[in-house]
Design a protein around this nucleic acid. Structure first.
Lengths: 351, 351
DNA sequence: ATGAAAGCGCTAACAA
DNA sequence: TTGTTAGCGCTTTCAT
């Protein structure tokens, strides 16, 4: 008794309770419940309970045009950034009866488009997207069409859509500040793709902090990675080396790129942090286990997901109170990949 | 033209093509397609194409009692083992029009049960499960009830269900063999929970290899972790230390436990691999970046997922040819956490 | 080879 | 307050 039996329908409940199916539906839908006399409502609930009745979401969805389903579109589940985020999403969604439908895009616009289409086909009620730059316009179009969308990790400049991101600029600044505090003056930056807001914002944060500390920003000390994925940092790191400029530290736009930097530097005979300090961004899982343990900027990926899910449901249910874009604060995590420079640069005389 | 427009229905297509909705349905369903004259079929397809018609899976599912949806039940997406597996599943499923519905159980039987119920409610066509030991009986029950299920990573002893697992025993054996080849004779084992097949099988593989090399297996050199999750290896590693037995190497039942071992040994003043070699299982992502880089047993998590998905669809479509349980081969990955023992044990005189 | 009609399980507009 | 009716979009007998 009370156990879930998939075969039971509203009709079964209605018959056993001696009422009409419509009445059963009303009793079981919180919004209509009050229209029914307490007496019958109780009886219906009792019977539903006994029969182990659970509404069929497909049938309900067909009728109401709501699937209680959310599309989650990310580049790659295998990127350690995303699993905690997805968990945050699901942990928020499930208790509310919603389910997440996942799609990986591998940052390929075509795959992303297909994924979006497939999810639309399944009538998802809304989307949580970490979009590829190439499709920003399309996502923008969806938003303008009134499709509920929340962006995660990236925001679209100039578009008023909902978004949840880490404080990229602040995080980048504090990374530079950490390096400066250690005594570094020649700081390089392996920037992420400038087509995406994290790449842009972290670059801006870098510039801003450098300027604040009156450190010269040499163009030759900034290189750009093609993507945020592992491996994409090798080329820019090598470029940095080949340019022949001196630097004692590098701020990489994320941990994966930082890892590539360390690897590349090591291959060139430079030890981290002895010869050059490296700092990343994200505090990806097991960053503390790496060699050396990675100094990085932390924010809660889980919370990004949770908040995004919360925002999205708010949007779907037409609650207008939510903020348009939520920026989560970041935190410096000091570990082994950063230390004082080998040859301390002249300390400046005044503050 | 041809672009997907969600609002278009069979009726729209039927009207424009001057046929009955039923005919449209038949044209678009491969199984019925041949019953229609080539002429009208072509015309219908043409119109469907023009209108950008795509069948509504919810409506279809309601009618056919197939949701084209698969339930994936895993302990924790955040465990690095699972993301590649999930990708394998989705990459196989998506081109076939199926979608995966994910649920995390955190290895809690209650959550697992709820997840199973929620997925059943959504009328998933089948399940891919990495079950918690406590619910093995329930999963067994589902299988016996004819619910399509494929187990991943774990199999249920004595139950003839479908399963895809790594060759745990073989992998464990080769881990021991590697250690023996390096000169180790006193080898400890931090075993996984014996309620799950990987824990059991890896333990067996360990015992088997030790016996084959005529090495004594001292009970005091085997400890058991409560789970396979990170952190669960600290206690057994500590226990090993406290027993005071000498050992020069430890085979941990997975990478996370191996990491815990290294950490715990280090805290006790033992360096890896100098003082004691450690070998794990899984070759989790970034295992090569750890300090020291982890020697481990590799198998393809992605392939596990892919094969499981393939098996499951075979099962759902009633193809009887598939094997009941697929065992994927493993491979030793030699890295920095294993090396020759500090004090070589007496080499045995004969083979 | 195709049309007609019914119905999957549910909810909502309309009645009463 | 509750029953009646219709229909979401699709497939599938049953006719023709």
């Amino acid at each position: 008794m009370g156990e879930h039996r998939p075969g039971v329908t509203v009709r079964d409940v209605a018959e056993k309770a001696g009422v009409h199916p419509g009445t059963v539906s009303r009793v079981l839908n919180p919004g209509q419940r009050h229209r029914i006399s307490e007496e019958t409502a109780l009886r219906v609930e009792q019977v539903a309970q006994e029969l182990g009745y659970r509404a069929n979401p497909l049938a309900r969805g067909l009728r109401t045009r709501q699937s209680s389903t959310i599309g989650v579109v990310i580049p790659d589940l295998t990127n350690p950034l995303f699993p905690p985020m997805v968990r945050g999403i699901e942990d928020y969604l499930h208790p509310l009866g919603y389910t997440a439908l996942l799609t990986n895009t591998d940052s390929e616009p075509q795959r992303e488009l297909r994924g979006l289409a497939a999810l639309t086909l399944r009538r998802v009620d809304g989307f949580i997207i970490a979009p590829t730059s190439a499709n920003l316009r399309i996502v923008e179009g969806m938003i303008n069409d009134g499709v509920p969308v929340v962006l995660v990790n990236r925001s679209i400049e100039g578009v008023g859509g909902f978004a949840v991101t880490p404080d990229d600029r602040q995080g980048a600044s504090s990374a530079v500040e950490h390096l400066v505090a250690l005594g570094h003056r020649s700081i390089a930056h392996v920037a992420g793709p400038q087509s995406l807001s994290p790449g842009q914002e972290r670059y801006r944060g870098f510039l801003q902090a450098m300027r604040e500390h009156e450190l010269p920003v040499r163009k030759s000390l900034v290189t750009f990675a093609q993507s945020f994925a592992g491996g994409a940092g090798v080329a820019p790191a090598r470029e940095l080396l080949e340019r022949g400029e001196q630097f004692t530290a590098v701020f990489a736009a994320n941990d994966l790129l930082a890892l590539d930097c360390i690897k590349t530097l090591k291959a060139a005979g430079l030890r981290c942090p002895r010869d050059v300090s490296v700092i990343g961004f994200n505090d990806m899982p097991y960053a503390d286990q790496f060699n050396p343990p990675l100094t990085t900027i932390r924010f809660s990926h889980y919370d990004i997901g949770r908040h995004a899910a919360e925002m999205l449901l708010g949007e779907i249910n037409g609650e207008r109170s939510s903020p348009r874009t939520l920026v989560l604060s970041t935190e410096l995590v000091e570990r082994g990949s950063s230390g004082p420079p080998a040859l301390p640069s002249r300390s400046r005389g005044s503050a």
